[in-house]
Design a protein around this nucleic acid. Sequence first.
DNA 1: GTATCTGCAAAACATTTGCAATTCT
DNA 2: AGAATTGCAAATGTTTTGCAGATAC
Lengths: 139, 139
Amino acid sequence: MNTTQRVSEILTTYGIRPSIQRVGIYDYLLTHRTHPTVDEIFSHLSPAMPTLSRTTIYNTLTLFASKGAIMVLNIEEKSQRFDAGIKPHAHFLCTECDKIFDFPQPLVQLDEQIMRDFEIVETQIYYKGICKTCKKNHL
Amino acid sequence: MNTTQRVSEILTTYGIRPSIQRVGIYDYLLTHRTHPTVDEIFSHLSPAMPTLSRTTIYNTLTLFASKGAIMVLNIEEKSQRFDAGIKPHAHFLCTECDKIFDFPQPLVQLDEQIMRDFEIVETQIYYKGICKTCKKNHL
DNA sequence: GTATCTGCAAAACATTTGCAATTCT
DNA sequence: AGAATTGCAAATGTTTTGCAGATAC
């Protein structure tokens, strides 16, 4: 089974019809786990799909998110980032080199009363600081 | 001691010179714990300070954040929100009414090795879901 | 009097919207 | 054909920038 077929099946699982663009975008997210911005996705896919537009990428990502196929990250002020997540994980943003790292999702225990009052759909944990490499370069 | 003096002292503690605008903005953040956007701050302070500009609010908030006097929230996609935080706390965004609630900061325990490799300056925890009031209105 | 701070106007971006053309079934 | 999807061009909204005038030390 080739890549396109495999990605198509995943999208179908989420109730998303697999168009060429959707498969391309989802495949990109799966193979480039760099939490790309819309622009990065556009720049990488554009050469192979010359007619692809930013609008379609926005449409597609909004659709993916609404179906739960991807996670939208707001760790960075300027623009949203996207993650075709397997299992939930936390994110670390290095304020020096702007790279985003995946961290294991720590267990967070909420108050019983809050759990009763609020229906929690999603939990995002963002760390900010200096990454290993940038720490070294400071020395 | 009046409010202006008290706020001025706090700003001085952070190494920020207390101008009229800065004191006004910081005081607003302290007394309105609504995680306001730049626009909300502007709308509320503008009548009392007619010459105040959005640019100054941006400048000021950037300065505050760099000195650690406030926290920048990116829980909402559209615009940044600000918090003159006393102690660290988590945030809950109701996707129904768009209100933001303060939650107690749960203890998150990170892997020893990660703690050694990364210098973590800030931890933000965002919950999204349906708040108490909106849950009731669904029934 | 020099450095800092403010604020206008314009620019820069990211994202959304309206709509016509295209594609799929 | 009819519904869903794509993508151009224009609009919107937030944040940034350049710079001149005002303020503080």
